[in-house]
């Protein structure tokens, strides 16, 4: 088993965005494994080992979550709230990656404990640059949070 801290969980419903994100991450030489879930419910299932991800070793948490806000089923802010509400996942670094520039979204994300809020620029060159910085920062520079010991 590879170290799950190397895993990046991308929560994104738009396949084009998924592909472009993957491309961008590859281009900036991020070696981490990219797990993609397409809606909020799946993201929660993945993290808490339920639903379609039932039976997954949930002790293996991703090193970083890239979370879109506008998602089918359960929206991004609710996902974030659940992550922070759970003792085990509450330290998980979560970066909100969205095209919304609404102030209320930014405020809500930070209120719920997002570690960062990055806007998806239409200009893909800028998106590329942003991804590069994210990878460098969160996987190189940033000290990952200690794991929460279960029980």
């Amino acid at each position: 088993m590879s170290d799950t801290s190397e895993t990046i969980l991308l929560v994104e419903d738009n396949p084009s965005d998924v592909a472009l994100t993957q491309r961008a991450l590859q281009r900036v030489c991020i070696t981490s494994r990219l797990v993609v879930v397409e809606d909020g419910q799946e993201a929660l299932d993945y993290l808490f080992g339920s639903g379609m991800h039932a039976g997954r070793d949930i002790s293996q948490l991703p090193g970083l979550v890239l979370l879109d806000l506008k998602l089918p089923k359960v929206d991004g802010l609710e996902v974030l709230r659940r992550i922070r509400a759970n003792k085990r996942t509450r330290r998980l670094p979560v970066i909100v990656l969205t095209s919304s520039k609404e102030e209320q979204d930014v405020a809500a994300a930070y209120d719920l404990g997002a570690n960062s809020y990055i806007r998806k620029q239409v200009d893909f060159a800028q998106f590329d640059a942003a991804m590069k910085l994210v990878g460098a920062y969160w996987q190189g520079l940033n000290e990952p949070p200690p794991k929460v010991r279960s029980q």
Partner: peptide
């Protein structure tokens, strides 16, 4: 703001 810009980003990307 969300859905209209997503395809644009796709086109650009």
């Amino acid at each position: 703001s969300h859905d209209l810009t997503a395809p644009l980003r796709g086109i650009d990307g």
